[in-house]
């Protein structure tokens, strides 16, 4: 279904792999940076929307509206009024969601790209052969899946002498970075339902991402960690730093 994304992804990933001295881990990191650059406008839009939604929570009109239409019987009216205010302030309430939806096909494609490029089974290698157009692809096969202590085609575990089980370091890193990313991106909501939704998102999303990283190939987990870190960095430069700078500017109203 996503062949139109997976095929070019695989070609670019293998091209980078070749360029970086056949290091698949570094290739995934560089490839993730490229994806973040290409999707930068969407991610920037998401951060802006989240910021606008957050500022809306402290708007007197919004607060008054929450007070006036309290209770389940006024839910419909509240929604109508909220929509009016969104329009008035030029806010798209789905602006923070749409980029997330865009991330989903990218995520599926990335999973299949990693699996196809590492080709641990005959069908995966056949699919790889069908889509690859690099002239020296046959010489590169099989790609070197080793990166640090990991086999990027297998679920990652760090085995430490004396500990009877492998530690899923990447899955833990994915959980931590997903939590921070989710916490940063989720606007604080003053209405109960919105706040609950936000809390659930902050709880479920990191757990799910960690679970996926625990059971699937380490290459995907590496993509998650890199993508999350880049997202946090982007958020820092777009929101935290400018806010701190404006707060420290002499004469700025607080």
């Amino acid at each position: 279904m996503l062949e139109f994304i997976i095929v070019p992804f695989t070609n670019v990933l293998v091209w980078i792999y070749n360029l970086l001295g056949e290091n698949f881990g570094l290739a995934i990191i560089v490839f993730t940076i490229l994806i973040r650059l290409v999707t930068y406008p969407f991610n920037a839009q998401q951060i802006k929307s989240a910021k606008a939604m957050q500022e809306l929570q402290s708007n007197p009109k919004w607060k008054a509206m929450q007070q006036k239409y309290k209770g389940a019987e006024h839910r419909e009216k509240l929604a109508q009024e909220q929509m009016k205010l969104y329009q008035e302030m030029g806010i798209n309430p789905f602006g923070a969601c749409l980029p997330t939806l865009l991330q989903l096909p990218l995520l599926f494609a990335m999973y299949w790209t990693v699996m196809r490029a590492l080709a641990a089974t005959p069908l995966q290698l056949l699919n790889f052969a069908r889509g690859i157009s690099l002239p020296n692809a046959a010489e590169l096969i099989p790609l070197n899946a080793q990166f640090l202590w990991m086999d990027l085609g297998q679920p990652e575990r760090l085995n430490i002498p004396g500990i009877p089980f492998g530690i899923p370091v990447l899955a833990i890193l994915v959980m931590i970075t997903s939590y921070f990313q989710s916490k940063m991106m989720t606007p604080t909501s003053s209405d109960d339902q919105g706040a609950q939704m936000g809390r659930m998102m902050n709880l479920y999303m990191p757990l799910l991402m960690a679970y996926i990283s625990y059971i699937y190939a380490a290459g995907l987990a590496l993509y998650f960690v890199t993508s999350n870190v880049l997202s946090i960095v982007q958020y820092y430069f777009m929101r935290v730093r400018p806010a701190a700078a404006s707060a420290n500017t002499p004469g700025t109203a607080k």
Partner: peptide, 13 residues
């Protein structure tokens, strides 16, 4: 999301 990634033991041959 989980379903779309397939199962960890996909038929491979």
């Amino acid at each position: 999301l989980l379903a779309a990634c397939g199962t960890p033991q996909d038929a491979g041959s």
